[in-house]
Design a protein around this nucleic acid. Structure first.
Lengths: 186, 186
DNA sequence: CTCAGATGAGACATCCTTGTCTCATGCTCG
DNA sequence: CGAGCATGAGACAAGGATGTCTCATCTGAG
């Protein structure tokens, strides 16, 4: 209706790009423009080229995941609770999360640096949660990080495929992580 | 030495293609040929084109994962033990496993059909293992399949990154799966 | 030693993608 | 109502990828 905020052309292009590129990394700018419902020239007016679009996507993904993580953890009373709420929030942003992890960030130093910083924050939170008894003392932090990431994506796929609601997928992912890593050790 | 079986050119191209395409789906046939150490014309002599190469990769991945799964489970005394041994075998074939799951199989009906058949076999084994008490009765089979696939890839990445040996990654993945899904339920 | 087969390099044509530009259209605001 | 801005469509040039072909070279087997 009158009060509905129509997404800008810029946002429509980003949204379409996430969806198209996650499904088909080889997709052309023409494919993305078509999916966004805009002309290719319009895409070129908003972005300086394919690399510029990819960079904008990565920055948007980083902004959204950072904001969602901060918002999710602001009322958490423990690191364990924070990790749970962040997991839940990330499951909604699975496409952004996956885009960041799998699109080559090597060619954008500033994206890589921010990605590494967020990784370090996650590792710090994991080590604090371990002290709270969430993870086995001998479980490698690399495995915890891997499992955390993959369960986010598994949850996102459950929601996307219609096999579970967001709340259900979050519960499944959290229970699996919590129970699974309490005993997992080398 | 004299008895070392030199990989054929055909095999070298497939091996290089798995590695290159998993890292960079947009890679050109020239990139793949270079990584295989052969000329692009040679690649074209072995494969009728890019689509033909992708189809051959998918068929090879299906053949190898099927053989490895069969070999892994031939001495298993229970479905749970079989799932464990298959998980261990798949972690070594993580690149094939991931290629099958993420390269678009929609355009090859015979690949899709075989993929679905192998999925059904896995689901059957999961349901039998559930009867053995491996999984919670209320845990959705879709979640079990998702978690199984993702832990395979998580384990493969641990090995590839040098964070764990194959045996260690297998143990971590199995413990995480077993402990995590024993309690995970909706 | 010779021949056949496999291969590498490079040329060539075609197609696709990208980036730029121009013109026309529509919408919104003053 | 008019102007300005955003956009779509299409043309055009350039570059890269692909597929085909030819010639030269090397290796292995007979």
């Amino acid at each position: 209706m009158l009060d509905i905020v129509r997404p800008t052309t810029f946002d429509a292009i980003l949204e379409a790009a996430f969806a198209v590129l996650n499904a088909e990394p080889k997709a052309s700018l023409g494919d993305i423009a078509a999916a966004a419902g805009v002309g290719r020239a319009t895409l070129h007016r908003h972005f300086g080229g394919r690399e510029d679009l990819i960079r904008a996507l990565a920055q948007q993904a980083q902004r959204e995941t950072e904001q969602a993580a901060n918002k999710a953890s602001e009322h958490a009373l423990s690191y364990s609770a924070a990790l749970r709420e962040i997991l839940k929030a990330m499951i909604l942003l699975g496409d952004r999360h996956w885009f960041l992890a799998h699109e080559s960030m090597g060619r954008f130093p500033e994206i890589r640096a921010e990605y590494d910083r967020q990784r370090d924050e996650l590792i710090d939170a994991i080590e604090e949660a371990r002290k709270e008894g969430l993870f086995h003392a001998a479980c490698p932090v690399e495995w915890i990080v891997q499992t955390y990431d993959h369960l986010i994506h598994a949850g996102w796929e459950m929601v996307r495929a219609g096999h579970a609601t967001h709340a259900q997928a979050s519960d499944l992912a959290w229970l699996t992580l919590k129970s699974g890593l309490k005993k997992a050790r080398l």
